[in-house]
Design a protein around this nucleic acid. Structure first.
Ligand SMILES: [Zn+2]
Ligand SMILES: [Zn+2]
Ligand SMILES: [Zn+2]
Ligand SMILES: [Zn+2]
Lengths: 147, 147
DNA sequence: TTTCAAATGAAAATTGTTTCTATTTATCTC
DNA sequence: GAGATAAATAGAAACAATTTTCATTTGAAA
């Protein structure tokens, strides 16, 4: 009986090592985006000898495999988020608490059209991210740390 | 008689130094995004003692003043672009030649609505960027270097 | 021209991220 | 279950883009 994460790793031809699984668990447990160091800090108690390079490598592998997504951040550091939603969609990022929520809306069609007709180019990818304050953070104003 | 760039700098309470003006000229001449080092390389012939930190500092100041915009790049380095279009809009980035073109379309209203009703949060900003191949690069296929 | 905050150059520091290499481990096969 | 093998990993070191520091210069206002 394989766990969900073991199956995911297998399907990507990645070995299901305890550390990879633990990383996915950490990401899955929190609905916020995390930096490699965040994940490393959360796991180094459990794995005495977990190296930061391992965390970086695994996150990048999982990102390339499409299991996790990156967050665009003003500080230009790496942040990752594990989203359970399989469909194409985009993300709302809370600038205060790092919570990530799905935004169903995507103007892909209109963008394609604007590029084809106006620019006469070809769309390869698009980035859409909304930065703001989530419902919870809106309520506890004053505690807000917008970086 | 002040030049356009002198007026812009003045309005931002930035001194109009020869180097700042030259940086704006470089950005204005090319309709592509440039890195701090790109700009430094283009100017260090003219200014024997131009330092890279000065370029970084000035670009950041111009960005904060809203004169130039940043480009989101897979390599996560800094790239800037001087856009003449004053209205709110977004950018199409050619992955091959760095050309930047304006995309009129913006789904701001729909995004606002999705966040207000579904997420019940507050939108502070949004990022929309389309990556692709421009018309010129589409024609000369084979020369394409998608990084 | 005098004044002074802002801008700058040069060197050094910072720091997030990546590379390198020897060792360990997951998984495949028998 | 016991090798065989390529993938994964730790630890140290390297890297490289960006930022800081500080002494000096310069733009612009009076
Ligand atoms: Zn929040
Ligand atoms: Zn999502
Ligand atoms: Zn192009
Ligand atoms: Zn534009």
């Amino acid at each position: 009986m394989k766990t969900k994460f073991e199956r995911i790793l297998r399907s990507l031809n990645l070995k299901s090592t305890p550390k990879r699984i633990a990383m996915l668990e950490v990401l899955d447990d929190e609905q916020v985006y995390l930096s490699p160091e965040d994940i490393w800090l959360r796991l180094k108690k459990r794995f005495r000898t977990l190296g930061l390079p391992t965390v970086y490598r695994n996150l990048e592998g999982l990102f390339e495999g499409g299991v996790i997504s990156r967050v665009i951040h003003p500080d230009r550091k790496l942040y990752y988020y594990l989203c359970r939603n399989e469909e194409h969609h985009h993300h709302f990022i809370c600038m205060s608490c790092r919570r990530v929520e799905d935004v169903r809306f995507c103007a892909e069609r209109e963008l394609q059209e604007a590029v084809r007709s106006g620019i006469r180019g070809k769309v390869l990818s698009h980035i859409l991210q909304i930065n703001g304050l989530c419902h919870a953070c809106l309520k506890k104003e004053g505690t807000v740390h917008v970086s």
